[in-house]
Write a protein that binds this DNA or RNA. Structure first.
Lengths: 205, 205
DNA sequence: GATTAAATCTAGTACGCACTAGAAAAGTCA
DNA sequence: TGACTTTTCTAGTGCGTACTAGATTTAATC
């Protein structure tokens, strides 16, 4: 029973790594088997199909991202600035997706490439993740720290978008770290690029 | 010679539409042929390969996006606020990618799904597009309108990321318009979510 | 209306993919 | 060691893909 668990884990790791870097289509059962020195048919002793395997990887990915953000928020003092809450959430997400392992990255990387079944399967997970951010923004607006003239759903999606798109150009080991990306997203989204005055603050919507 | 040009255009349109909604892998030569009522083999009279066809669609897409942004910037008065320049560029991009046709959307949608050849082929185009935004940010920083304590490349990619990711959730005809998305991105990225003071303005990087 | 050129179709090939069946090997424990 | 179970391999199937060759139809020209 030990051997099986270990190779099963190897398969999951190899799949996560491939999904994170090559995407869904380029991640073939054969290529997964090769990276761990197996025949492709052997994969099916541990998983009944490619999509079940991929689905499990994505489940782990969302779970890790949610845990990372939840944990970061839980470590905040009871009385905290909503800006600080949004900041630690952004940092946790950036670390998980850019600095962290392949699993959360696999999630973001394969977004929009998955077959309908898998997309459907992870809908609820994504929705739950979105709720975390909705709450952060709502808290800020209600406490008066954040502007109330913006659509909160759109604001949420813009923050997540800025973070998620980063994996398309982010290269670990380059001159920019995951923490720096997070810091920049926070600064731009909360404080803005503009200095001082901000006379252009009017939204037609 | 007329007939050929017309069907050629039909093929391009159908491909752009499919790429924009279904992505690269799900866009098969057969499915393209079906939507315009042809046999898949007939496609090869007009294009030598799938990737040449896709490449042409993507070329048109980048060209349209660049044109849209350039044109919007050209219509600005000679003396203008750098914030206003960034604003019209963001709005033009949002309109082109979200409100506009399938061609620019195909570009964004298939980003990260393309085979290496095609990715390579469009590298320069993407780089040129990035330069437009780099210049907008540089102008703002040099004129003192934008903060100088942020990495400009990262700032640029965050803006583009927020805009590009929007197509993953944006649905034309829903309650949010392309213009509203653009307006929100501008507001958040230039003015920030936060109200007033902004005491949290320090970057460790 | 006959001749030529352009455009499309029919019928296939080759290949990579996910996946299966059953034999072989490796591991487990008396 | 020997009997049994777990794990992996060999060898294959069927399907969808991009793509090709040559016949056939449609359009243009004189």
């Amino acid at each position: 029973m030990k051997k099986s668990d270990r190779t099963r884990q190897d398969i999951l790791d190899a799949t996560a790594s491939s999904l994170a870097t090559a995407g869904y289509t380029a991640t073939t059962v054969k290529s997964i088997a090769e990276t761990i020195g197996m025949q492709d048919a052997s994969i099916y002793y541990h998983f009944s199909s490619k999509d079940e395997l991929v689905g499990e990887v994505l489940d782990i990915g969302t779970a890790r991202a949610v845990t990372a953000v939840d944990q970061a928020l839980a470590e905040l003092p009871d009385e905290h600035d909503p800006r600080e809450a949004l900041r630690v959430a952004i940092m946790a997400h950036a670390e998980a997706v850019l600095g962290g392992g392949d699993y959360p990255r696999a999630n973001v990387r394969t977004f929009g490439q998955l077959p309908p079944d898998l997309t459907q399967r992870h809908r609820q997970g994504h929705r739950n993740y979105g709720h975390i951010w909705t709450r952060l923004i709502d808290d800020g607006v209600e406490s008066g720290a954040f502007r109330g003239d913006l659509n909160r759903s759109v604001a949420r999606l813009i923050i997540i978008g800025a973070l998620c798109w980063a994996i398309e150009w982010f290269d670990a080991g380059e001159e920019v770290s995951a923490a720096e990306v997070g810091e920049h997203v926070f600064q731009m989204v909360v404080n803005g690029l503009s200095v001082g005055e901000q006379e252009s603050r009017t939204v037609s919507a």
